[in-house]
Design a protein around this nucleic acid. Sequence first.
DNA 1: CGTTTCAGGCGTCATGTATA
DNA 2: TATACATGACGCCTGAAACG
Length: 315
Amino acid sequence: MTVQHSNRLLMVSVAGSGTGRGSPAVTLVQLPSGQTVHVQGVIQTPQPSVIQSPQIQTVQVATIAETDESADSEGVIDSHKRREILSRRPSYRKILNELSSDVPGVPKIEEEKSEEEGTPPNIATMAVPTSIYQTSTGQYIAIAQGGTIQISNPGSDGVQGLQALTMTNSGAPPPGATIVQYAAQSADGTQQFFVPGSQVVVQDEETELAPSHMAAATGDMPTYQIRAPTTALPQGVVMAASPGSLHSPQQLAEEATRKRELRLMKNREAAKECRRRKKEYVKCLESRVAVLEVQNKKLIEELETLKDICSPKTD
DNA sequence: CGTTTCAGGCGTCATGTATA
DNA sequence: TATACATGACGCCTGAAACG
């Protein structure tokens, strides 16, 4: 069976496995994405059907329960509540979780950690970083309290490619430059980011490092130098100031900028996650459409059979 | 082959919602 | 009540497909 739905060809195959009565039958519905959906029979025939069909007659998708429309059509909702419902839909996660809570064994959208993603490194799951910064090339730098710097590359999935490094002079920082190292995947050109204390981390080009206070740059790893900012902020770079040491209006402005960048970064990640959930929600809706098509077809067939039985031809 | 159209993704803003 | 989070809306960008 094929169902055309929203520019996407749905191919659904149904494998019946159960009895029409007694315990709810379970049907496997093969979705076009290769995903198999377990559906459950919902018709609880109070009287034995005329048709002694071993196959279940109706199915209900297990991944989704009701939509807003069906919810509205069920009971009488007072106008105020209705307005509230119409004013803003609940989140996709909430909808899906509420729906799936009706049917045990139905996968829910996890709160944060999704198994399918294999618990990717996430900014939100970092070891309580004191600060999060964004480099001029889009990388995110999280500086934990133990002196550990975590770098996440802006991959397709947001924060994949998280890397951790430790400052070499986590003890008493000497005045001047500090070298930090990390195994970057690809660092083309100079990039800069900033760390707390109004210092700048500059990726050095080859050996243009500060001659003193320098740790040995080993191998091909790029080196980063922490030093006081000398010029205006590069584009897309966040200046970090110690929260407790704000004096001048410039520092206040820098703190405001840092907060804004942090907020934007969080919202960026939230938007990505929201879109991912929305896609999942739409997938579930499409699955439900496929299952309801199957259900509709079976009901039509049953109706035709009943018609034949109740009104036999009298030739 | 250049242009146009369209779909999908992303970043940002505004605002509703949940929670401490 | 303040804060963080979630999400709709908007504009922009990019890649693919259609078209002349």
